[in-house]
């Protein structure tokens, strides 16, 4: 079984915890307590595309408030994937998401980290189309330009949530197998498992930022 570390980032109250709970427990609470610091959850999935591959996601769900950003390097240290979440009814939250993408690219470097932009609260648009404040095309265009995966989901109905993790799983898996093939060719003695552990990066930000 492969183990991938995944971190959730995004503005407060966009639904990060709700997405994780939908994925891990398949449940939804209309009123969920704000996350303080971080919460850790894990969930195992079988890849649809590669039937024999099972992935254990080690998920770090973080607090959304701006000031928690200073703790963020601790979360994304060694992460294989990041879900950057915004609320489709809150344009400001997309701006925040974009700044998270910037930060990840700057601090981690994008070559190893799979980033997925996720627009949440799709259900609000279904009941009232005018609730939508972020066009799907805009977010899609941005994702394409930044080479991000992109999904719109509803943690409330569950729509699209499973797909995010399937797609991320596939991407990380394919990336890792390609890498390990390359490193095997390079006569590396490292095993696949070792390779899956990303080395720590930019430590100077991890405590003093």
């Amino acid at each position: 079984m492969l183990q991938f570390k995944l971190v959730l980032l995004g503005d407060s109250s966009v639904g990060k915890s709700s997405i994780v709970h939908r994925f891990v427990k398949d449940s939804f609470d209309e009123f969920r307590e704000s996350t303080i610091g971080a919460a850790f959850l894990s969930q195992t999935v079988k890849l649809e595309k590669h039937q024999d591959v099972t992935i254990k996601f080690e998920i770090w769900d973080t607090a959304g408030q701006e000031r928690y950003k200073s703790l963020a390097p601790m979360y994304y240290r060694n992460a294989n994937a990041a879900l950057v979440v915004y609320d489709v009814t809150q344009p400001d939250s997309l701006v925040k998401a974009q700044s998270w993408v910037e930060e990840l690219k700057h601090k981690v470097g994008d070559q190893d980290l799979v980033i997925c932009l996720v627009g949440n609260k799709l259900d609000l648009c279904e009941t009232d189309a005018s609730a939508r404040q972020v066009d799907v095309e805009d977010a899609q265009a941005y994702s394409k330009e930044q080479k991000l995966l992109f999904h719109e989901v509803s943690a409330k109905t569950g729509a699209g949530v499973g797909q995010i993790f399937q797609e991320i799983g596939e991407h990380v898996y394919e990336r890792k197998t390609a890498e390990s093939a390359a490193s095997a060719a390079a006569q590396s003695r490292k095993t696949l498992n070792v390779e899956l552990q990303r080395p720590s990066t930019n430590d100077s930000t991890s405590c003093c930022a």
């Binding site: 307590e33 303080i36 610091g37 971080a38 919460a39 850790f40 770090w60 703790l71 601790m74 979360y75 240290r77 720590s200 430590d203 991890s206 405590c207 003093c208």
Partner: peptide
């Protein structure tokens, strides 16, 4: 570890911030 806090502190930080509420 004083400089690069162990990941466990991601969980324990909230114990202090909310004084164990929740």
């Amino acid at each position: 570890f004083l400089y690069k806090l162990p990941p466990i502190t991601l969980c324990t930080a909230s114990w202090f911030m909310s004084c164990f509420v929740g």
